[in-house]
């Protein structure tokens, strides 16, 4: 066989193209893997730091002291898919956040260094989630309402724990509850959401009654998902209090000093009232990612 110079050049070019294409594909895969690995690493670090804090706490008589730091960072996630897939991804992230911070099983709030001065409204934003458009779920589609998502949590089994998401949050580890603060648009592409862990304000033995003081706060223990209407007003469908703005309700929810139970929250960060109330009323524990 006779090999011409032109043939050799063409062959070389094809080889280069194949090698470059392979490199791009492999690099992309590795990069995605590393990003995912970084997130998993951050989650593991956070979970381990919380567990270590609890494991190394000193209890003198009835006073607890913790010295080990919280090493957690907020992770930014992008998700997409059909409505059911988006629901599933959000629910899984909520469950992961709950698991990381101890599933509500610590008697003293996860962020308190001592139970002598326990209290306050300490929160940590586990994830901020942006939902991308997909062929099955577009920006102008009807969003997933609070009621729908609440029903999803009630009915869907969290495979890892072999119980529904709602049961897992409420009694899978320690006691807990779920709160959703969504706008009228619900959960849909083009909006940003936050999944936050709100630590208990007191230890679990400190009473179990609804906060009853003050007309505004009475009955605040309405659990589930609140829909915030235009202008910050509350709409029905699970909402509980009348004639008050979203800001007031969220403030009361967060600052309720009898909330001696940990909570997992899903909030619509694209809604100004919700975002403002969360930022002003939650004492966000510092994120090591910001350091």
């Amino acid at each position: 066989m006779r090999i011409t110079r032109k043939g050799m050049e063409a062959g070389f070019l094809v080889s280069v193209i194949i090698v470059l294409t392979a490199f791009v594909l492999i690099a992309g895969t590795i990069f995605r893997f590393m990003s995912s690995a970084e997130d998993k690493q951050a989650e593991t670090l956070c979970k381990d730091s919380i567990a270590l804090r609890a494991a190394t706490s000193l209890n003198v008589k009835e006073t607890e002291f913790r010295v080990s730091p919280v090493l957690c960072k907020t992770l930014d996630k992008k998700i997409s898919g059909s409505k059911e897939e988006v629901e599933s991804q959000i629910a899984q992230k909520m469950a992961r956040c709950w698991e990381i911070f101890g599933e509500g099983s610590y008697k003293t709030g996860a962020f308190d260094n001592t139970n002598l001065f326990a209290g306050g409204n300490k929160c940590f934003m586990c994830y901020t989630i942006a939902i991308d458009e997909s062929s099955d779920f577009k920006r102008d589609s009807q969003g997933i309402s609070g009621q729908e998502f609440q029903q999803y949590l009630r009915e869907t089994t969290y495979d890892k724990k072999k119980q529904t998401y709602l049961d897992y949050f409420q009694f899978g580890g320690g006691p807990g509850y779920v709160v959703g603060l969504l706008s009228e648009e619900g959960i849909k592409p083009g909006r940003g959401y936050g999944i936050a862990f709100k630590a208990k304000a007191q230890d679990s033995e400190g009473g179990g009654d609804l906060l009853l003081g003050g007309g505004l706060s009475a009955g605040i223990g309405a659990i589930g998902f609140y829909t915030i209407g235009i202008g910050g007003s509350l709409l029905g469908g699970g909402a509980a209090l009348a004639g008050i703005g979203a800001y007031s309700l969220i403030s009361d929810l967060i600052t309720d000093t009898k909330s001696n139970v940990d909570a997992i929250m899903l909030v619509d960060l694209s809604n100004e009232e919700i975002s403002r109330a969360m930022n002003e009323k939650c004492e966000f524990v510092s994120d090591i990612g910001g350091k």
Binding site: Q147, F171, Y177, G238, A240, S259
Partner: peptide
């Protein structure tokens, strides 16, 4: 809490939700 709305099949009706448990916060 009683609240009107639709179920996942779009049927209209009302939800009857009872809360209690720890702190009165649990469903």
């Amino acid at each position: 809490t009683l609240a009107t709305g639709k179920d996942k099949d779009g049927v209209e009706g009302a939800e009857f939700i009872v809360n209690g448990g720890k702190g009165g916060f649990q469903e």
